[in-house]
Design a protein around this nucleic acid. Structure first.
Lengths: 339, 339
DNA sequence: TTGAAAGCGCTAACAG
DNA sequence: CTGTTAGCGCTTTCAA
């Protein structure tokens, strides 16, 4: 059995209180006692039980994180940033990978509650009623990262998805494209689904470019989905000369589809992605993308959550909007007459 | 403050023991009491404290996981599988992303210890002396996944890296290639560094194909590294007609480099990767790869660790070797005279 | 400066 | 079947 504080006390010939004091770096301990305690700790290889500490301190230094898909380049990167920031602040991550599995999510939320985690980070916005109700009853600070659920009860760290989608589409228009297709997300998602779609339409409307329903498809943000939707779009009579996909994954899927149809990106079809994931630099041609500040998003999410946890007065009441940024690589070219 | 078991007991007019009993699904509780307790739990929105339970049960249902790089396709996939299996068995994951940061790893290992996690999964093999010593003193079950550290103290779930590398190289030879380059890993790593290298050499030797040092480079498994090493190899007078890269990431980097030099895969150079990560199907041409059973590896790792934790007699004393598998896609072609 | 003792929220003998 | 009670390993008054 691992040694306990009592064993250390005995070994050092002091009371447990004194041991506790040196453990917690308190001042009022004479140097010689402190030294004896430290030696005893070393000799016994003692490590304080975080469990016992949590019980009395009512603080676990645990953050529960709900990720939609660990294997996605976007989420794994943001998670990595979350982990880094948490670690820097002496917090640890309990991660749950829910793959569209609502039951699993609910179960984990319950576990987080029982674990008495200090805070919860959620990275998807498809909350069902059961979960929404549960979340509202929970008195654990909750923050959403990269998404905002439809009700405004919780704080979110996001970008302005409407503006970002608008700007991405605008970029394609500026390149001279008129037939611009849209590979969208889930319209049940406000931020990544609806807002990006509206932004796309907004940019076209502003220039009086007709909106062609045939060029517009919705999927699930994944590569395969991008591939399939692109296939449908290519089946249109005169297909678009440019595509705006609302995730890099979908954009890559679309690129692959174009490739498999013996067409060239960007010569035949320009494609712009969204997110700024690692994929952008990994594919050929490299993917231009409307990028979210992924690293920063993770960092800000954790820092804001920690403020929420510590009950800091300065904690923002409104969503935190980070800046998006167009990063041009090689997947978009000017419109060419002959195509 | 969240309600405690005592509150439930009072509300239901029973003792805390009875509440504890229905909480733990014990038999000897009369139905009417059971019903009253359940109602009280609902009314109060009571959730038992995992902290308190852990303290008395001496079991946390926590598994600490050390991942070298969360954003890597290989590790995020295996982590995803680990998470799934753990969740199925009511275990939760504490994840630590160490990015070649030994201090962070040491710190986390200490945290795992203080948290009294029930088991630890480690996915890298570069243990320094300090960490090795710490691990040996720890009396928490530890298992290595996808790697095996040089000393045999701990159990590993791996493939036969020598055989896999041999087979991959052999495949290229069968395609008629004689000038076969090698993009390797870190030679301090026994499994993914040394064994794969020896396997490569073994396959060449078997056919009496001379080993050309110029065609052999070592890196860090990442895309950028593969890119850079390929660049060096292409700078050789007569460059190889085929490349074996010991990670899919490096293989993709090499492919990109070939592409950026206006050469074609596989027409000019064949490339085979290693791992079987998601990247293989995402790039064009799709990458042939010597695949590890990633999903299964995560699953087996957790299941074996759980056996270790429960002290099952059947727990294997020797490393668990899973089967590798060559998956042919479009990145390797037959040797052509004209190239 | 130091220590004794109460208690964090729960489980598990041990009685009844 | 049900309740009393003693801890689990630590922090924290409160006294000394």
């Amino acid at each position: 059995m691992a040694p306990k504080i009592k064993d250390v006390a005995k070994q050092a010939g002091v009371s447990v209180t004194t041991v506790s004091r040196v453990l917690n770096g308190e001042k009022y301990v004479k140097d010689d006692l402190k030294a004896r305690v430290k030696r005893a700790i070393d000799e016994l290889g003692y490590a304080p039980s975080h469990i016992a500490r949590s019980l009395v301190r009512k603080k676990t230094n645990l953050i529960g994180v709900i990720v939609p898909d660990l294997t996605s380049s976007f989420y794994s990167t943001i998670l990595s940033s979350i982990e880094e920031t948490a670690s820097l602040n002496d917090y640890n991550l309990l991660v749950c990978n829910i793959i569209e599995d609502t039951d699993k999510e609910f179960k984990y939320l319950n576990v987080f509650n029982e674990m008495r985690v200090d805070g919860i980070i959620i990275m998807h916005e498809k909350l069902n009623d059961e979960i929404r109700a549960f979340l509202n009853k929970l008195d654990i600070p909750i923050i959403f990262s990269s998404v905002r659920p439809s009700d405004q009860t919780f704080l979110s760290v996001i970008i302005d998805d409407y503006a970002a989608a608008f700007d991405a589409t605008h970029y394609l228009i500026e390149l001279g494209h008129q037939r611009i297709g849209f590979i969208g997300g889930d319209m049940r998602d406000v931020t990544s689904g609806q807002n990006r779609y509206i932004g796309y339409r907004g940019a076209l409307s502003e220039r009086n470019i007709p909106i062609v329903d045939e060029y517009i498809r919705f999927g699930d943000y994944k590569i395969q989905s991008g591939y399939n939707l692109m296939k449908e779009i290519l089946a249109c009579g005169t297909h678009p000369t440019a595509i705006f996909a609302v995730s890099d994954d979908m954009a890559v899927g679309a690129m692959n589809c174009v490739h498999d149809h013996q067409l060239k990106v960007p010569d035949d079809i320009s494609i712009i992605g969204f997110d700024g994931s690692q994929l952008t630099e990994l594919v050929r041609p490299q993917l231009s993308s409307m990028e979210q500040p992924i690293q920063d998003m993770g960092k800000v999410t954790v820092e804001t959550l920690l403020d929420l946890i510590s009950g800091d007065a300065e904690t923002p009441k409104e969503d935190i909007i980070l800046k998006h940024k167009l990063v041009v690589r090689n997947s978009c070219g000017p419109y060419r007459e002959d195509k």
